[in-house]
Every structure is written in C-alpha cells, then in structure tokens.
C-alpha cells in the first residue's frame, strides 16, 4: 500500500521546516493516508508557519488556519457545513502538542463530546518549538526546555506527560491511536483507519524535533525508534475506549534514548544522575506494564 502512495505527494517540497523535521515528515505521511478528498484544519504552530508563509503553501489539499486553540471548533463548523451541503470530504485537524494538550483542550473536548465526524491528529514534538522550545503538557519528565530549564536547582520539567489519548478515549472516541514518524506505514494505516471511522477520532504521532530536542538532523528516525524501543513512547490503538493493540518490543534501557538528546544532557553531565534516570526508567516500566509491550525472553 505504501508503494502505491509513493507517487502521491500532497505535501509539497520547498517548505521552510528544519532539515530532519519530524512534523514535516508527519504532514507528508498523513496526506498520503488521507488522500485528496480532505480538508485540513491547522492550529498556529511550527507546521503552520513553515508550510504557509503567504503567498506560498505546501498544502495541495484545502487547508485552513484560524487561531492557536480553535482548530477543533473550526473543524466542528466545517463538519456541520459539509453535512448540510451533502459533501463527503474528510475533516482532519493537524495540530501541535501545545495546541492540543494545553490551549486547545476546551475546543477539543467540546468537539469530541458532540461527536463530530472529524479526525484530530496531534503531531507531538513535546514542547512549543515554533516559539523557542517552551514546555507544554506533552513535555516529558526531566526534559530541559526554555521554560523548564535545567539549572543548579532544577532537573528540567517536573511534570509528567499528560495522557491525552486516554482523555479523548474517555470522551467516547471510537478510535484513538498513537504512532511515530519512525514507523511510517503504521502511522499511515492508523490515519487511514481514523479518517474512515465515523465520529471523532484521534491520532497522536511522535514527531522528534532535532532543534528542540538537540540531536543531529539525520537521527530523527533513530531517535523516534529508540523512544519506542525503550518504552518511553508506546504505539497503541484504542477502539471504543479499550486498548486493542500495542507494539511489542525487546526493551532497551532508557539511557540509550536520553543520552542522545541535548534536552536530557543534564542527567549525564556534569554529574551523572542515576536517581533521575531510574525515575525515567520507572516511567518506561509502567508503560510496559500498562500496555503489555515486553517481548519476554524464554528462560
């Protein structure tokens, strides 16, 4: 299926994303999955800015951006209008984690409760990257950002990542999934399933940001894979509120993921913080337990 889509590029090259941008890859992949019969609703954020500086646009499908926090409400109106006009385009929000986890929650909650036929895709790069790497509700524990900086009395972000998939599943969303740009076919299949499931559906795609996280631009996919392989990101699907599938892995220690990113550098230098690394390992262990992702070696 992926090969068939190779010739169908609906996200044009020439946009202004950084080299190695995870969200840009997410945009390209998700449009391959939705196809042309779609209306994209964007929030303010990295992707909006790098893809649509007037008069240029990278979007070869209908695209609208209104504000930072109202994509789900704008999509609600589009859904209503299409229904009234008897049209069948899919309505897909594509928003960053700040717009999704923080400022847009009210609009998302309303849209999901009302049951609009929309798919909401959150490209999760785990902080406000467009404006200078400030923490969001999606920023992981201990990550250093410009508003949760590591320092003499700080080890970075003190909060744990908000469980948005769980929150939206609790709204009664018939389909909720997490994915990663490091596993493109899996991501595209989930988007395809989401847009073809009636009602409000949610896909949260892990989209590593080389600029904000601090890794070389050629390592985006490797970092994304390590997030999965350490259990710090779990790819799973929920149908009608139940987890039906989660990607199993032979887990690696979280240190392999953390040590390759500048945002976690303070856990290793100037002194190694085994206590903190152990806390993050515990997060991965809880994920593994919750989703049953461990492939057990035979004794």
């Amino acid at each position: 299926m992926a090969e068939v889509r190779q010739g169908c590029e609906l996200f044009e090259s020439g946009h202004r994303a950084c080299g190695g941008c995870g969200p840009a890859l997410a945009a390209r992949l998700l449009l391959k999955a939705t196809g042309e019969n779609v209306i994209i609703v964007a929030s303010t954020g990295c992707m909006e800015v790098f893809s649509t500086p007037y008069p240029e646009t990278a979007w070869k499908v209908p695209w609208i951006h209104s504000l930072f926090e109202n994509a789900a409400a704008v999509a609600s109106g589009i859904d209503a209008a299409l229904k009234k006009q008897g049209r069948d385009e899919k309505v897909v929000c594509v928003c960053g984690d700040g717009a999704t986890f923080d400022i847009g929650v009210l609009c998302i909650s309303g849209a999901f409760e009302r049951g609009h036929d929309i798919t909401y895709i959150c490209y999760d790069n785990e902080a406000y990257m467009n404006t200078g790497i400030q923490r969001s509700g999606a920023t992981p524990y201990d990550a250093s950002t410009t508003t949760s900086p590591a320092g003499r009395c700080s080890l970075g972000n003190v909060h744990q990542k908000k469980d948005m998939p769980g929150i939206l599943a609790a709204h009664g969303a018939p389909y909720v999934a997490t994915a990663s740009v490091a596993f493109p076919n899996d991501f595209m299949q989930k988007v395809e399933r989401a847009v073809n499931t009636p009602g409000p559906t949610y896909v949260q795609v892990h989209a590593p940001c080389c600029t904000g996280w601090g890794f070389e631009s050629g390592e985006t996919l490797a970092i994304g894979k390590l997030a999965i392989e350490t259990g710090l990101w779990v790819n799973y699907e929920m149908v009608d509120g139940e987890v039906v599938k989660a990607k199993k892995v032979r887990r690696k220690p979280v240190e392999e993921y953390l040590s390759r990113q500048r945002r976690f550098r303070h856990l290793f230098k100037p002194v190694r913080r085994d206590d903190e690394i152990a806390k993050i390992q515990a997060i991965a262990d809880r994920n593994a337990e919750k989703f049953g992702i461990d492939i057990r070696r035979k004794e």
């Binding site: 409400a73 109106g77 589009i78 209503a80 209008a81 229904k83 009210l106 609009c107």
Partner: peptide, 25 residues
C-alpha cells in the same frame, strides 16, 4: 433546515461559524 452546534463556549461558537462559513455555508 440548519445544523445547530451546541458549542461549549462563545469562543467555539464563533470559531465554528468561521469554519462553516469558510466551507461555504
């Protein structure tokens, strides 16, 4: 013959109107 969206705030009311208008209604 109208779709009546019972939004969760005035902020969303006008945002939904914006979306519907942009879609041609």
């Amino acid at each position: 013959d109208a779709e009546y969206i019972t939004v969760e705030s005035e902020f969303s009311a006008l945002s939904a109107c914006l979306g519907a208008s942009a879609a041609g209604s």
